[in-house]
């Protein structure tokens, strides 16, 4: 699961005002005044942004103790916990949105986590680094190394990211567990959204990150 180190180590594009573009995108997918759970909330940047810009009632779970204590000291409602073990304790329909930002690939059981998210919340927002990005593919193909990029800066032996997936893989998982994709956006390395009408293969190759708004298929 995500920790502070992800956020600090990864060089993710930021807006002119210094906010991470993927977080801005995530926040735009959340309705105003909603009740939101941010799983793997790190140092609380997204929760803070959601509170400021969308007036949400936000809660967070974070694995790292430093992250939690920093969040609580900022006045955010955050608890120390693990996405893999603690989501089961939340009742059904407790939130409007459950967010998993840059954390999916660090969970032990991504599928179970995703299922819990859509049980606890009516919607889920998931953002993750796309392992199908061309720079990743080229490193493996030509250099023969496990890829290291700006948003995936770790060596294979000390990475918290144990379940990488591509945008295509994620779409497949959503189909398998019967989740409706309400909205999907791929960001390139500069944090700009790719063409909306592009086919999946294009996103899968040129999107550095995928951001998905999901809901239950009822």
């Amino acid at each position: 699961m995500s920790s502070m180190t992800d956020f600090n180590a990864a060089k993710i594009a930021r807006t002119a005002s210094g906010t991470r573009v993927d977080l801005v995108l995530v926040s735009q997918m959340v309705a105003r005044g909603a009740k939101v759970l941010d799983v793997g909330c790190g140092d609380g940047e997204l929760l803070h942004l959601l509170g400021e810009s969308r007036d949400v009632d936000g809660r967070g779970i974070e694995l790292s103790r430093e992250g939690v204590n920093e969040c609580v000291a900022k006045g955010l409602a955050v608890i120390q916990g693990d996405a893999d073990t603690d989501l089961g304790d939340y009742p059904d329909d407790a939130f409007d949105y459950v967010i998993l930002s840059q954390t999916l690939q660090a969970t032990r059981h991504p599928r179970v986590v995703l299922e819990h998210m859509l049980r606890i919340g009516r919607h889920a927002v998931v953002s993750f680094p796309n392992f199908g990005h061309w720079t990743v593919r080229l490193q493996l193909l030509f250099a023969g190394h496990m890829p290291q990029t700006d948003i995936l800066p770790y060596s294979w032996y000390d990475t918290p990211n144990i379940h990488h997936c591509t945008i295509k893989d994620f779409v497949q998982l959503c189909n398998e567990i019967g989740v409706k994709i309400e909205k999907a956006v791929a960001l390139n390395a500069w944090g700009s959204p790719l063409r909306l009408n592009a086919p999946w293969w294009f996103w899968n190759l040129f999107g550095e990150q995928g951001v998905f708004l999901l809901s239950r298929k009822d």
Partner: peptide, 18 residues
């Protein structure tokens, strides 16, 4: 305690101090 508060949808923060 925190689990129970979560199950009750309470607004809860929890910190463990080393």
């Amino acid at each position: 305690t925190v689990h129970a508060l979560n199950a009750a949808s309470a607004r809860v923060s929890f910190a463990e101090i080393v």
